[in-house]
Amino acid sequence: MSDLTPAISKNSKILALFAITCTAAVGLVHLLTKDRIEIQAQQQLIQQLNEIIPITRHDNEMFRDCIIVPNDGNSDLLIDVIYRARLNNTATAAAIKTVAPDGYSGNIELLIAINTDGSVSGVRTLLHKETPGLGDKIELRKSAWIETFSGKKVLDKNDNRWAVVKDGGMFDQFTGATITPRAVVKTVRKTIDYFQANQDDIFTTASNCGAKQ
């Protein structure tokens, strides 16, 4: 056993040395790319926000005018961040980042923009793991389906048009995939309800999402 000790200690030293070198290299690349990655993510956010709330409807920097909504656990709607759009300091719309938890393969992250009159300004899918070729038509680059929400309103509490055609609603399902659009429609509907119930709070709460200058 004792004759093994020098070999073990030598090998562990070499291994440690390599671990340190590799970690240092990764750390260095991380430092060099960190700012750019942040800018890229921010630019994508700005672009997406401008797509669903056109520049004619706001003149503020939406990605900085936002609130983080604490999850109170009472509602089954998971809201992440709300970006507020204002024109001449008057609230015009809000983009709500939320999650549809009942997709075919897990969560679907959505960005839902709603005008102050309660109509949908636009919806985008941010992240999903739906089946390629079937459920991924919720992506704008695969299909224009997500655009069908634009301009739609929830008329009253019993508005049953907010469902896929198969369930008697007004939104198309996809061939071979009903669960995915059903989950998206349900979450958009719930988000509109939330928006209408909390509209005053949404626009008056001070910005607290801490976006960098």
């Binding site: 290299a25 990764v26 991380h30 790319t33 990655i37 890229q40 993510a41």
Partner: peptide, 12 residues
């Protein structure tokens, strides 16, 4: 990991 970071930064 380096390639991943670089692609994240340059081909987002």
């Amino acid at each position: 990991t380096c390639v991943q970071l670089l692609m994240n930064a340059f081909t987002y």
